[in-house]
């Protein structure tokens, strides 16, 4: 928070936007959407060593209770239709991280007939994390980049949705 004036009595002054963004970024609850190999690294990121819980990020099973959807793994065409449904079920403000090469662009499965080359063909993506699979440290950096992006939001102006028509 950049506008911090702390007086001797322990009072902080800020703007409403900054305050809301600070609360939102400090408790990013992500949906368990592990599809393939990156899901194991997602579980390791949640695990004891590269712990994202210290940033306030906790896993939720249901899209209705989560802010962030980490698409971890290859998206097949059969799954892409369901991914759209799940994304629409998430309440706003909602964010998407495309974790790994397969979710970003199809990865090494671009030669496949049944793979959707990148999750951004069906839902808008905020952060792309490269790797196959990305290390837990890389995913943590992705979440931190997302937090930086969240700090730039303005709550009076709605974020334009790209391709969000069902």
């Amino acid at each position: 928070m950049s506008l911090v004036n702390s007086l001797s009595q322990g009072v902080i002054t800020t703007t409403a936007d900054q305050f809301l963004n600070w609360t939102r970024k400090s408790s990013v609850w992500w949906m368990l959407f592990g599809l393939a190999c990156c899901a194991i690294e997602l579980m390791q990121t949640q695990g004891p060593r590269a712990d994202v819980d210290r940033f306030g990020a906790a896993p939720r099973s249901s899209p209705r209770q989560s802010d962030l959807m980490v698409v971890a793994g290859t998206l097949t065409l059969k799954m892409a239709l369901r991914t759209k449904v799940l994304y629409n079920q998430m309440p706003e403000p909602r964010y998407v991280i495309a974790m790994g090469a397969c979710a970003s662009c199809g990865g090494l499965f671009q030669l496949a007939y049944s793979v959707c080359d990148g999750v951004d063909k069906v839902i808008p993506v905020d952060v792309y994390v490269p790797g196959c699979p990305p290390r837990p440290e890389a995913l943590t950096e992705g979440i931190l980049k997302l937090q930086e992006k969240m700090m730039t939001e303005t709550w009076l102006v709605r974020r334009p949705e790209i391709g969000a028509q069902a």
Partner: peptide, 22 residues
């Protein structure tokens, strides 16, 4: 079938050495 990545078909497109990462 939600994770059918057609690995068996890809084996026909890449060489024996190249299939190892798949």
């Amino acid at each position: 079938g939600y994770l059918h990545r057609s690995i068996e078909k890809i084996s026909e497109k890449v060489s024996y050495h190249g299939f190892m990462p798949y």
